[in-house]
Simulated scan of single mutants.
Amino acid sequence: MSRYYFDLLDGDALAIDDEGLELSDTRRVQAEAAKSLADMARDAAEATLSDSIIKWLSRCATRTDL
C-alpha cells in the first residue's frame, strides 16, 4: 500500500497532513477525498447556520420594537 497525504488549502492558510493514510489504490484515495470534502462542506454549512442564528438572535434581543 502507498501512503497518501491530504493537505488542505483554505484561502491563504495551508494545513499540512503530516500523517497521511495508507490506501490500496486510487479508487480508495478518491473515496477518502470525497468523504473529507463532504465532511468539510457539512461543517462549514453548520458553522454558517449557527453564526447566522446567533447574529439574528442578537439583533432580535437588542430591538426595542419587538
Rank of each mutant, 00 (worst) to 15 (best):
residue 19 E to K: 07
residue 40 M to V: 10
residue 8 L to V: 14
residue 37 L to G: 14
residue 32 E to S: 08
residue 22 E to I: 14
residue 5 Y to M: 02
residue 45 A to P: 01
residue 28 R to F: 03
residue 33 A to S: 06
residue 54 I to A: 00
residue 4 Y to S: 06
residue 25 D to E: 04
residue 40 M to C: 07
residue 54 I to Q: 01
residue 3 R to V: 06
residue 22 E to F: 08
residue 23 L to Q: 04
residue 50 S to R: 14
residue 51 D to T: 11
residue 64 T to N: 12
residue 11 G to K: 01
residue 31 A to D: 15
residue 62 T to R: 12
residue 53 I to Q: 09
residue 12 D to M: 13
residue 37 L to N: 15
residue 11 G to A: 04
residue 47 A to R: 00
residue 14 L to S: 05
residue 2 S to A: 10
residue 45 A to R: 06
residue 43 D to L: 08
residue 15 A to F: 01
residue 40 M to D: 13
residue 13 A to T: 09
residue 1 M to C: 10
residue 16 I to Q: 06
residue 38 A to N: 15
residue 47 A to C: 00
residue 50 S to E: 15
residue 10 D to Q: 10
residue 25 D to C: 05
residue 6 F to A: 07
residue 33 A to F: 03
residue 24 S to R: 13
residue 24 S to E: 14
residue 13 A to H: 03
residue 48 T to A: 14
residue 2 S to F: 08
residue 30 Q to T: 06
residue 42 R to V: 15
residue 40 M to T: 13
residue 32 E to N: 06
residue 59 R to D: 15
residue 58 S to N: 11
residue 37 L to S: 13
residue 36 S to P: 11
residue 48 T to D: 15
residue 44 A to G: 08
residue 39 D to H: 08
residue 35 K to E: 15
residue 6 F to R: 07
residue 29 V to K: 01
residue 43 D to P: 10
residue 19 E to R: 06
residue 7 D to C: 04
residue 3 R to K: 08
residue 46 E to Y: 05
residue 37 L to C: 09
residue 42 R to Y: 08
residue 19 E to M: 03
residue 34 A to R: 10
residue 14 L to C: 01
residue 35 K to N: 14
residue 15 A to K: 02
residue 22 E to S: 15
residue 41 A to R: 13
residue 5 Y to F: 11
residue 38 A to Y: 06
residue 21 L to R: 10
residue 50 S to H: 14
residue 25 D to A: 01
residue 46 E to P: 06
residue 56 W to K: 07
residue 58 S to Y: 03
residue 66 L to R: 06
residue 6 F to I: 12
residue 23 L to I: 04
residue 49 L to W: 05
residue 43 D to M: 02
residue 63 R to S: 13
residue 26 T to D: 15
residue 42 R to M: 12
residue 43 D to W: 01
residue 18 D to T: 14
residue 46 E to S: 00
residue 54 I to P: 00
residue 38 A to W: 06
residue 26 T to G: 09
residue 50 S to P: 13
residue 28 R to N: 11
residue 36 S to G: 14
residue 9 L to V: 12
residue 60 C to G: 08
residue 45 A to M: 05
residue 49 L to S: 10
residue 65 D to C: 00
residue 37 L to I: 15
residue 47 A to E: 14
residue 13 A to L: 00
residue 48 T to L: 13
residue 7 D to I: 12
residue 8 L to W: 04
residue 2 S to M: 10
residue 28 R to Y: 03
residue 57 L to I: 13
residue 52 S to N: 13
residue 27 R to S: 04
residue 20 G to P: 08
residue 21 L to Y: 07
residue 8 L to A: 02
residue 29 V to F: 01
residue 57 L to W: 11
residue 44 A to N: 13
residue 16 I to K: 05
residue 34 A to G: 02
residue 31 A to Y: 02
residue 9 L to W: 01
